[in-house]
């Protein structure tokens, strides 16, 4: 029982007291702070939420605004989003400066295993991509688990699962 309460640093393996936010040995951020929260959180800075975009493809890229209708099947909520650069999917956490465009907190995101920074959508040359941001419980496209940080093309009517939360994506090109 004793060791269960300890926070093991994922980077150096040092044991930290519960509630510790930065590993005493190597300084790695321990967002769980012990048996209090569950998911890893790569963001360090409290203010910044911008994620570096994938390198621009050479040549002419036609950046067109896309509209996504995200149908959250578990709750029946529909969210309509326009993708200009990218949109973050996750759970709102003002304390860490995480403001996802698609906030799944109200849809039971925490219980369904949605990370605060779970995944992102973005467009390239008229195609919509989804990329998992190394979320704890994974992102699934039509039932297949995505490798973190790799873009996958999304088609109209695809089903995506963030953790165990199901959504259906409708794409409207302008």
């Amino acid at each position: 029982m004793e060791t269960k309460n300890r926070v093991i640093c994922p980077s150096c393996g040092a044991e930290n007291l519960p509630g510790t936010l930065f590993c005493v040995q190597c300084g790695t951020y321990l967002p769980s702070g012990g048996p209090l929260r569950t998911e890893p959180l790569p963001e360090q800075d409290g203010e910044e939420t911008y994620i570096k975009p994938v390198p621009e493809t050479m040549g002419k890229t036609t950046q067109r605004t896309m509209h996504l209708e995200i149908d959250i099947l578990d709750t029946g909520r529909k969210a309509i989003l326009s993708v200009e650069r990218e949109i973050l999917v996750g759970r709102l956490d003002t304390a860490h400066g995480i403001f996802p465009a698609l906030d799944l907190t109200a849809d039971g995101g925490l219980e369904q295993g949605v990370s605060r920074r779970h995944a992102r959508f973005y467009t390239r040359d008229g195609t919509c991509f989804v990329e998992d941001l190394d979320s704890t419980n994974g992102t699934f496209l039509n039932g297949e688990r995505l490798t973190p940080y790799l873009p996958y093309a999304v088609q109209d009517e695809d089903t995506i699962m963030f953790g165990t939360l199901h959504v259906k994506v409708h794409i409207y090109n302008e």
Partner: peptide
């Protein structure tokens, strides 16, 4: 950092 602490069998950091 927290206003409510859980009852644990070990010490904790605040």
């Amino acid at each position: 950092s927290r206003s409510t602490l859980p009852t644990l069998t070990t010490s904790q950091m605040l």
